[in-house]
């Protein structure tokens, strides 16, 4: 279990260059002759949260699916936790995926299973003892503040609650990497902030490396400008001049290419016309 935060000074550590959890090297992929990613390269450090930005259809979700090995690139290399993903068999990929968690845009909860069974799915597959499963499931649901829904089916939950159960399912086995696919898409601002607060909590409490796609700019700014205070159990803005590093970086895609990869300060200082227009 990662260390907990009690003060701003204990925020997520900066990514260590020697510890890359995800590496994309000149990755390209096309669907039906339409180039979606063109020579995309980037790295995700341990404990780092990288926001993938871009207009609809810019290849953000494709990057997540490539990192999981759900699809293979046409060219280039992908390394996840040191493993060469595009050279791995499906059986080996299943092993690797157990170290990762994914939150889908539409939750993708198993609709014939209860919330308990959904969150416990991976633990049951691993053959964990029932008492340990129950403890872990309740812990994950408590984290997303939905312990009271444990017996309900996904169809009985609201959109925001489904996303939170999706987060609980992704974190229940304490993965080393989390992939969030537009976790706030289609949600109202209040629910979106609740979800983002959970992601900030996950980032700052467990220091899990994460890739997050989004096209909601307010969410990215909240992620970059806030930290989670464990003592008060709530998200707080990083004070101006503070040394807290939110460990959050930005990667902007345009026409399948990476046009920006850096921190929020570098983003704010960028003179690129498209970037300024995108954030306007």
């Amino acid at each position: 279990m990662g260390t907990t935060l009690s003060s701003p000074q204990a925020a997520a550590p900066p990514p260590n260059d020697s510890q890359k959890t995800i590496v994309f090297e000149r990755v390209s992929i096309a669907f039906d002759e339409r180039v979606v990613l063109d020579n995309v390269s980037f790295e995700l450090g341990r404990g780092e949260t990288k926001m993938l930005l871009g207009v609809l259809g810019s290849g953000k979700t494709t990057i997540l699916k490539l990192a999981l090995g759900l699809i293979k690139p046409d060219s280039g290399d992908i390394y996840v936790l040191g493993e060469h993903v595009n050279a791995m068999s499906e059986d080996l990929l299943f092993e690797l995926r157990r170290k990762m968690g994914m939150v889908f845009q539409e939750s993708a909860l198993f609709d014939s299973l209860t919330v308990r069974e959904n969150v416990a799915f991976r633990l049951i597959e691993e053959g964990m003892p029932p008492e340990e499963i129950e403890r872990r499931v309740r812990e994950a649901l408590r984290f997303v503040e939905l312990e009271n829904t444990i017996e309900q089916f996904p169809g009985e939950l609201s959109g925001g609650m489904k996303r939170r159960v999706g987060i609980a399912r992704a974190i229940v086995d304490r993965p080393e990497i989390l992939l969030y696919d537009s976790p706030t898409a289609g949600l109202d601002p209040v629910t979106s902030t609740t979800i983002i607060e959970l992601l900030v909590k996950q980032r700052d409490v467990y220091h899990t490396s994460a890739l997050m796609t989004t096209h909601r700019l307010p969410d990215t700014l909240i992620m970059a400008g806030n930290y989670f205070d464990v003592k008060e159990n709530k998200m707080k803005p990083i004070p101006p001049g503070s040394s807290i590093d939110a460990g959050t970086t930005f990667l902007l895609l345009k026409d399948g290419k990476v046009i920006f990869d850096g921190t929020v300060e570098e983003l704010a200082a960028s003179k690129d016309e498209y970037i300024r227009e995108y954030f306007a």
Partner: peptide, 13 residues
């Protein structure tokens, strides 16, 4: 509804 992808992502064939 992406449940098959979710299953693969959870490490289950």
């Amino acid at each position: 509804t992406e449940q098959i992808d979710a299953m693969r992502a959870l490490g289950t064939d």
